[in-house]
Amino acid sequence: MRIARSLALVLLVTLAFGQMPSPLAALERLFTVRPAQAEWFSASFLQQVPVALVDQVISTLEAQLGRYLGVRAEDNGFVVSFEKGEVPAVIALDSDGHITQLLFLTPRPRFAGLEQALAGFRELPGKVSLLVLRNGQELAGLNPDEPLAVGSSFKLAILNALWEAIKAGKHAWSEVVELRPQWKSLPTGILQDWPEGSPITLHTLAALMISLSDNTASDALLSVLGREQVERWSGQNRPLLSTREAFVLKNPANHGLLERYLRADEVARRRLLPELDQLPLPPPTLFTGGPVAPEVEWFFSTRELCRLIEGVADLPIMAINPGPVQPKSWQKLAYKGGSEPGVINLTAFLTSHQGHRYCVSATWNDRTVLDEAHFISLYSGLLEILAGLQ
């Protein structure tokens, strides 16, 4: 269910707060009375978003998802239903009933069955890997043994190594380490902005690594555990790069070092790692466009990721951030995803209300900017099908 990227999937303006007399009715009106009227919106909203753009977004949703059916309340927002799917929405009104905030989230397509859900993944350009396991048996697969770049989903390997060390009594969740400057990486995350020497438990590092995909937290744990210990879980990724090392290698200013690294074997690559530690991080803006040095990544098959997430699925930190998973649709969930320009992976380990255990891992790579919202939409639709299976 592709939504035009120029609309960025969202129409978001938050400029005023107040009472909300009837947000559900205001949302319904947008789909039942056309065209939208300027008097429905606050002046501050209209300064940012013209009425014509509101109509354009709604028309695009209807073109992709079919006839409008209705609106219902869900959690802290609403869901707009269509013939072919539904769209979570957030709306806020001022005390006079004018719309001050309007947000349409990633659509959740409604598929007729598993085969239709899988068809969308097959049609994607580039390389795609998908694996659906049900109670340990393969229910569906698309190149499930092909290693592809998975972004921050590699942090599942670090968490497995940590959990193994804790169970063996070598470390403890309550163990405290002081934040070191050499651990600081680029966002995502928050720890890169914390003061050096801040005391942090291993549990906090792990929770931030999984829930916020905090790069500094993952590099800290990689250092505490030791690269060789984590590599027992990292498959072909040897040496397993820290996020800081990967960012430095991707920096165009270090192109010569990158060429040496790519030509080297594993032993020679390990010898180059101290050189990376001496170089500064590139600016974060380097990674806001298209793919940068895609050869420098973490490569896992979806089958490997299913094994990794199953090993830590029962840890409570795995459910802090459910990602595209709808918690109410599942009895229990564990989720980790990863992305960078040209790369996206979504991996979940789920227990249905019928008692079935699923792993659903999907990866997409291409040498251009990906329509991540479309991929997430396909994944969400697949999960809805699985949640209803008996």
Score class of each variant (00 low, 15 high):
Glu178Trp: 11
Leu179Thr: 08
Ser213Asn: 06
Gly226Phe: 04
Glu175Trp: 05
Glu178Thr: 13
Val224Ser: 12
Leu179Trp: 12
Gly226Leu: 07
Asp193Val: 05
Asp219Gly: 06
Met209Ser: 12
Leu205Phe: 02
Pro187Met: 12
His203Phe: 14
Ile190Trp: 13
Asp193Pro: 07
Thr201Ile: 10
Arg227Lys: 11
Ile190Ser: 13
Ile210His: 02
Pro181Gly: 03
Leu191Ser: 05
Ala217Met: 07
Asp219Leu: 13
Asp214Pro: 06
Gln229Thr: 11
Lys184Tyr: 05
Trp183Phe: 12
Met209Lys: 00
Leu186Glu: 06
Ser174Lys: 15
Leu191Phe: 13
Ile190Asp: 07
Thr188Arg: 06
Lys184Cys: 01
Arg227Met: 03
Leu202Tyr: 07
Thr201Cys: 01
Gln229His: 14
Gly189Asp: 09
Ala220Lys: 00
Thr216Leu: 07
Leu225Gln: 01
Leu221Arg: 08
Asn215Val: 05
Ser211Lys: 01
Ser218Ala: 15
Ala220Ile: 08
Thr201Gly: 10
Pro187Glu: 12
Ser198Gln: 15
Ser185Thr: 07
Arg180His: 13
Ser198Pro: 05
Gly189Arg: 08
Thr216Ala: 01
Val224Gln: 08
Pro195Leu: 13
Arg227Asp: 09
Leu205Arg: 05
Ser218Val: 04
Gly226Lys: 04
Ala207Arg: 09
Ala220Trp: 06
Ile200Asn: 10
Leu179Gln: 06
Ala206Tyr: 11
Pro187Ile: 14
Val224Asp: 03
Thr201Trp: 03
Val177Trp: 11
Leu179His: 10
Val224Lys: 11
Gln192Lys: 15
Val177Gly: 09
Thr216Ile: 03
Thr204Met: 10
Ile200Val: 15
Ser223Asp: 15
Trp194Asn: 06
Asp193Met: 14
Ala207Leu: 02
Gly189Ile: 10
Asp219Ala: 06
Gly189Val: 07
